[in-house]
């Protein structure tokens, strides 16, 4: 059974102006489709990465996966329990305590007025448990000192704060951790430390990660399977080798070509054309067709469905 399964997930935000302005200025309701019909599953003890540029809906999917946002359509199933439809409160609570999240900004994700001990213990104490000694143990597990439990967040650097966030996420002994850009605010050398820590913990504790990032190199390093998002849609999915050695979707190909390379000295590339379209008025058919070199009439009329191609999955009419 998959650890987490997401089916036909869709999320629409109402970004209309206030009612009175709409009436006076005769504006229609503005709806932003942040996530549109996304389906994937993450096997237990694996790392699944969602990668995409801004506006691709990757963070929205992450929030729906942990239950911070509710889906407009579709469902999220954790260990066989459907978060959107389950009515049994006990089962629901169990499913929720199995999921934790690590956020992007290590400065905003720790309450500045709380001691580190209270921050780390909160997932346990909030459920009425006793956190005695827990924070100290977890701090050592993430490579900090047990003495740090009495300090406040402002006494730590960005990388150390992210370790504290990881310790908090581990406190309720979750099975799945959703990591929303956990290293994009960190420097390269600190990023390496945090990524290694996350890999160690995954192996030691048998964790499953849903890893959200815009950084292709990080994703290639850490994940077992990668889903590429464009404008709220999943366009391609495959293992790192399948994706990086044999990208099938024209968008994935464009993304890989555009990413800076460490050995690309003086590389002159033909930069990709255009920018990401406005998600309030997405293109018809395939969302990528206005920028796509392969686009045909079918692409502007009909949205491609996910299909198998050489072991990977791709949503493109033309990919071969």
């Amino acid at each position: 059974m998959a650890m987490i399964e997401v089916t036909h997930l869709t999320r629409i935000f109402d970004v209309s102006k206030p009612w009175l302005n709409r009436v006076l200025e005769r504006l229609p309701k503005a709806l932003l489709t942040a996530v549109s019909d996304v389906s994937f599953k993450v096997e237990e003890r694996t790392v699944y990465a969602l990668v995409g540029e801004s506006g691709s809906g990757k963070s929205t999917i992450g929030k729906m996966a942990v239950g911070l946002l509710s889906p407009s359509e579709g469902s999220v199933t954790i260990n066989g329990i459907d978060l959107t439809r389950e009515t049994d409160a006990a089962k629901m609570d169990k499913a929720r305590s199995d999921i934790q999240m690590i956020f992007q900004d290590p400065y905003a994700s720790l309450n500045p007025r709380w001691k580190v001990r209270d921050i780390i213990n909160e997932p346990v104490t909030a459920r009425g448990g006793s956190g005695v000694g827990l924070a100290e143990k977890l701090l050592e597990q993430v490579g900090l000192s047990a003495l740090d439990a009495d300090k406040f967040p402002h006494e730590f650097s960005g990388g150390q704060r992210q370790r504290i966030c990881i310790a908090r996420a581990l406190a309720s002994e979750p099975k799945l951790i959703v990591c929303d850009e956990p290293t994009s605010a960190l420097d390269v050398s600190v990023q390496a430390q945090v990524l290694n820590l996350m890999t160690n913990l995954q192996e030691d504790l048998g964790l499953t990660y849903l890893f959200i990032s815009h950084d292709l190199t990080v994703v290639q390093h850490i994940s077992d399977k990668i889903g590429v998002l464009y404008l709220g849609r999943l366009v391609e999915e495959g293992t790192p080798d399948q994706l990086f050695d044999d990208p099938k979707h024209p968008y994935t190909q464009m993304l890989l070509a555009a990413a800076p390379k460490m050995d690309g000295f003086g590389r002159e590339i033909d930069p990709p054309q255009g920018e990401i379209p406005d998600p309030i008025n997405p293109p018809t058919g395939c969302a990528f067709h206005p920028r796509c070199p392969l686009a045909t009439r079918q692409c502007s009329a009909e949205r491609p469905v996910m299909r198998e191609l050489r072991g990977a999955r791709v949503a493109c009419h033309e990919a071969t």
Partner: peptide
Amino acid sequence: GLMGSTPLASKGLKRLRQIPGS
């Protein structure tokens, strides 16, 4: 150390090279 800790430089390794400390 800085070059080594980028994910690209550690391609194929399960762990990235890292500089200890900060």
